[in-house]
Structures are given as structure tokens and as C-alpha cells.
Simulated assay, not measured.
Amino acid sequence: MKKSSDTSMTGEAIADFGDEPMTGTSDGALARAAGVTAWRQIADAIEADVMNGRLTPGSQLPTEARLAERFAVNRHTVRRAIAALAAKGLLRATQGRGTFVEAKPLAYPIGRRTRFTEIVSREGHEAGGELMSAAETVADEETARRLRLMPGSPVLRTEVRRFIDGTPVSSGTSFFPLPRFAGAAAVLRETGSITRALAACGVTDYVRAETRITARLATGDDAARLDLSPGRILFVVDALNVDGTGTPVQAAHVVFAADRVELVVENG
């Protein structure tokens, strides 16, 4: 399943917003003698509207051209203000789609039965998945240890990106033992669901045997995949799932945008 459709404001809603002055002076003009740079004043005005709820999570900002016209500045100045707010995690600028207010983080519980689609759907959101690559390879020492295989054993390596309401929230690499999961890639390509891929290979249920959580800063590749600014914080989750007999079925390495999900570790 490809990522879900965009949930931004409609063009009419954007036009209505653009016809009203933003926080600041009554006509939206900048205070030229305030001793604060123009881009900072614009950033502060937008941030104030996010904080007071006038710009709601998931809503789309007017275009750079309309903001430039409102504040009587060039588009480069507007772009710098948007970049500063994106770096803070308040906005998400996506090429070809526009700039959006970041949604509030989704509580994402991690326990013995962690299922992305179930968790997202339960919170009233739409889950999506996209298989980015799949290839047969051999297990290195660390992967073999996690899957209880001999080093050099054949495994299926996949990369999957996950979405909530069309916004990318995670990107992960998984390894599945072969030949047991030879058919998993085809199901992942069609549905984007790990659970369905495992079920198609005979694993009707599985549980989380181990989860390790660390953090790091986003690289340029992370930023491109998750539509965020380089340097933003990522949660790094290394997980091992096993079937009913305790046999490993998936070793995963997943990065989450830290300001889009709140990892909740469940006891028991």
C-alpha cells in the first residue's frame, strides 16, 4: 500500500487564512525599526499562531509568494523563516506539496504485540506503508546472531517507510530468514504490512522478544526519507520478533522522527 493521501487544508481554507493578518501588527506588516531581522519577525509571527491554535496541527500555510506579499518582503526572507521553524520541528516543508504545521506526536506503545497499523488506526489516524527496496543477501555476524543463524546464511533484506495520515514517521531495515520468508517481499510490495507479509509465509502471530531504543541526529538521507531537516532528533529502535515457538522471524532497525511519535514502553 502506498502512502495515504494528503490531509492538508483545502485551497479555499488556505485562501481564507491568507486574507487575515497574522499575529503582529494589524495589517501584517513588519516593525522595520524593531531591531529584529525580518525573517525572525516572520518566524515569530508564524510560531505564535501555531502556539495559540490559529494554525492547527496538519494545516497548510499559504504559499511563499502570499506570505512574502503579506509581510512585504522577498521570498528568500520567507524561506529562511520557514527553514528556521522546520529546524525546530514546528513546520514540515515538502517540495511540490507546500508547508504544513507538524502534527502532535502520536503515542506509540512498544510491548509484546507491537503492530504499526493497529496502533495508528486505534488513535483515529490512517496508517500507510511503502516498500522501498527488497533483496536477497547473506547475514553478517550481528544479523546472524540476532536471528540465530550461521553467518553467511541467506536472508531477505527489506527497507520500508511508514506513514501516518500521509506524513512519513519512520524508515526501517528488516532481515528475514530464507527460504522461510521468500514470499514476504511480494506481500510487502502490495500492502506495506509486515504482519501480512509474515502471515503469508505461515506466521499467523508473533511477539516482540527484544527492543533496544537509542537516539541520534538525522542525516541528509534520513531527512529526505522523512521530510524533515537534517540534525533533527531520531529515535532508533532495534527490535527482534519471534513466532509462537520462540524462533526469530524478523530483526529490524527502525528510525522514528522523534517529534512525530512518542515511544511508550509497556510493562508485561
Rank of each mutant, 00 (worst) to 15 (best):
T56Y: 08
G129L: 04
A45S: 13
G35D: 09
V261H: 05
T247L: 15
A139L: 08
T173D: 10
F176I: 01
D16G: 03
D140I: 00
G11V: 01
T173H: 06
I119Q: 13
A68C: 07
G246H: 09
R162T: 04
S8G: 14
E130L: 15
A197N: 08
L30P: 04
G24C: 03
Y206L: 15
L67F: 00
N74Y: 14
S193C: 09
Q250V: 01
E118W: 08
R112I: 01
T37F: 15
E20L: 15
V261A: 09
A209V: 00
A135I: 13
T56S: 12
S26D: 14
G172V: 02
T94M: 07
H253N: 06
T211L: 11
T245L: 11
K104V: 03
G111S: 08
A199W: 05
T191W: 06
L156Y: 02
V78R: 00
L198P: 05
A239E: 12
A15H: 12
G35A: 04
R70K: 10
I119K: 07
L91G: 10
R146M: 10
V254H: 03
A81D: 00
A45M: 00
T204W: 15
I119H: 06
A135N: 07
A239G: 13
A81L: 02
L234P: 14
S153Y: 11
T37W: 13
R54N: 09
A87F: 05
A84I: 03
A251D: 08
A139M: 13
Y108I: 00
A134E: 07
D6N: 01
V155Y: 14
P109E: 15
L228Q: 13
E69A: 11
M132R: 13
R54M: 09
F235Y: 15
I42G: 03
T137D: 13
E123P: 04
A87K: 13
E12G: 04
A33L: 07
T167L: 06
T117F: 15
G183W: 02
G166A: 06
L188N: 02
G98I: 00
G98R: 00
A107M: 10
D205F: 14
A258P: 11
I194S: 13
D238E: 15
E142P: 00
G246S: 10
A29N: 00
